[in-house]
Design a protein around this nucleic acid. Structure first.
Lengths: 243, 243
DNA sequence: CTCTGATAGTGTAGAAACAACACTATCATA
DNA sequence: TATGATAGTGTTGTTTCTACACTATCAGAG
């Protein structure tokens, strides 16, 4: 039921309204390592602290559209993977006013990482998730921790990882991403088998020359005619608890 | 970054704000069948339509507190399982104004199901999820469908089902819940083994007399010293896609 | 030209998990 | 004491997982 918990029919002036923002946790791979985009705040509160990029929603755009707008403002990237993460709305999380923040996760390809500093921030940069700033603005540590945990757990039963790779890639590069995000080593042979059997990849005849034997490149099969789920193993931390 | 996408430092009057509501999809078991609580709307818009209970958030309560308040208003129940589901905020989902709705899932025990009609609704009742009203108010069909799908997928890798049972229950009652929510028959022997091996249950010496052999009752082990994940199988629809 | 190191990719065997279903156990009541 | 009903266990063939040994193909060193 919407807008009618009160005793009488709706009166739009009766309720004080919180502000609603959209924050976007933007991940990418740089040198095979998982990074996240943070902006350094110019103003009070949390002046000088690093924060997850975000902003107010417009009244005529959907939440996802707002997230895409933010994403494009920060990175110039369109058409990336975007997923709603969670909505954070504790009173007092912003000292200025009540703010409800709908958090999104975005995955940006390794080959599209130009970023731009806005007027509201003094700096923008990619931070490796293994070495983040000590403190973030607002409750953004909590948001970021939850985003990383969600990313890990989703990686195991979705095709998310492909969103981080360029069009063509080798199977061992893919394995490297999994190892990065899951934070553990995977068996080469078993990885090969699983990814091949999953039928998620399409072989190309592109080959990359390197030090050893030439590397066959593959692309993600987008027609989704996959035979099997692509799952590594059952893991405790698959459980995607709320924050 | 909060509240600072504009060109200058924050001016609270500059932005129009959406209304924010919390909707709670409340599940329970009645006669071993999964039911959901819906209220029938008294006023425009969607007068006479069934809707998910919900209401505006207060400025000084957290989102979860608002959800618990709604839940208690509708069912008089406290201390139930409550989880944030998703935030729905498309413009136009409410004809009166822009409404952002944070949806929650609640699981209510089978033995606590008293409900009360509020002034805003003409009726409240439990609907079996297998036979819901044809049309719901607002975008509530979408919310409800997503809630059911989330419930199904979470059931397989969490201990959610225990939230629907009374303190003591038999293993076959538990199996019945799983069958209800997953919508498929499970093998008795395999279920026994899995649930026993999971070490999630604690044997009691309470026995229920019935038609055949007496039934041993169990309780959910809350100390969480579980050896193993409790998982039925890998299923396609485990993937918990966004709506 | 052949050795070596580096990368790519395959084979395999033991272990564990799964699924199907047959089987035993214990009660009430006819 | 037979029968039906519910509770609970055993068993077996199949699939999946994991660890790790193995083969393959290249560049460059000697």
């Amino acid at each position: 039921m919407e807008a009618e918990t009160s005793q009488h029919a709706y009166d739009p002036t009766r309720y004080e309204r919180p502000a609603v923002t959209v924050d976007v946790v933007i991940f990418t791979l740089i040198n095979q390592e998982l990074h996240v985009l943070l902006v350094q705040r110019r103003h009070w509160p949390f002046e000088g602290f690093w924060a997850i990029p975000g902003g107010f929603i417009n009244m005529d755009e959907s939440l996802e559209a707002a997230a895409r707008r933010e994403l494009e403002e920060e990175t110039g990237v369109r058409d990336v993977y975007l997923e709603q993460l969670y909505t954070f709305g504790d009173p007092g999380r912003d000292p200025r006013m009540r703010v409800i923040s709908v958090a999104y996760i975005a995955l940006v390809r390794a080959d599209a990482q130009k970023i731009s500093v806005s007027d509201e921030s003094t700096d923008v940069r990619w931070w490796p998730v293994r070495a983040l700033p000590d403190q973030l603005a607002f409750d953004h540590e909590q948001i970021l921790a939850y985003a990383i945990s969600r990313l890990r757990s989703k990686l195991e039963y979705t095709t998310l990882a492909f969103q981080l790779l360029p069009e063509l890639f080798s199977i061992l590069e893919l394995k490297h991403i999994y190892e990065q995000i899951l934070g553990e080593k995977l068996d080469k042979g078993n990885f090969y088998r699983k990814i091949k059997e999953s039928n998620l990849l399409e072989e190309t005849n592109v080959v990359r020359e390197g030090r050893g034997r030439p590397t066959r490149l593959w692309r993600f099969r987008r027609d989704r005619t996959t035979d099997k789920q692509f799952v590594f193993r059952w893991r405790e931390d698959r459980i995607d608890r709320n924050p």
